[in-house]
Design a protein around this nucleic acid. Sequence first.
DNA 1: ATGGGCTCCTGATGGC
DNA 2: TGCCATCAGGAGCCCA
Length: 289
Amino acid sequence: MPELPEVETIRHGLEKQALNHRIQEVLGTGSRLVRNNPQGMADLHAHLEGAQITAVSRRGKFMWMELEESDFALVIHLGMSGQVRVRRRAPKERIAHEHVRLLLDNGTVVSFVDPRTFGHLTISQLHEDATGRLVPKIMRAVAPDPFEDVPMEVFTNALAKTRRHVKTALLDQSVVSGIGNIYADEALFRARFHGTVRGVDLEEESAAALIDAARLVMGRALRAGGTSFDALYVDTEGNPGYFERSLRVYGRVGRPCRDCGTLIEREVLGGRSHFFCPRCQPFPPSAGR
DNA sequence: ATGGGCTCCTGATGGC
DNA sequence: TGCCATCAGGAGCCCA
């Protein structure tokens, strides 16, 4: 569910409400969310209890909490339906599908909620990646995201080399991270490419324009607090985002294109819905399906 | 190398 | 009203 703008909204909420506080206790038993840790919840207890949160960082759709005097971090991935909720004092009632709680030294409670449990909470050692940034090792296959200060070639080299459909490449977190199904379609619309264009058929500057479009649309979504179709995405205080009203193609099948009036279409690409305007994003005749 | 299919789950929605 | 099929903001795996 959450893509970069939604994850960044949550990261910012966590930073405001949890940074520099100490984790007193970790609550929860045997949730699937901790499946990637060899010792399950025991790894969370061992690394988190008593530790002060010294940073809340993000790359793409991954967040992580850095800890005082530790080179291990708590990596948070929200999958399709994950939420992080922060409340001022320990509520008696549990939120449905609340799996793990962190109790902080100021009485704040951080809850990890996830109905489908595709997300995960993983303790991972930090190390310096190829760009010189300190990131958790389990993210070794995660490329920088479009908001990071890296050369454009980091993205366009991979995009312009592949024979895959450009939408598939945009969704590949090892090519560029943070982009999911909504913002891939929105970026493709704004850059005027159909999702089935082949990466190799893109000019270098077209590939750059596509990354720029993704950055632009995700930046605007971030300023709107993200996209909420339903109660699945809310920020750390339970509030929805308001970018849905600005979507140009995603979820708008059968409705008129906001630029040209042609009806938006949907087709399946790589097993996911691809929404596009057939007039604004014509399939290039040269490229072959 | 690449695409397709399937998997992990729960919940919302729409057709009959 | 109920029942069933389909779909969903992610991502890893296996197979052809």
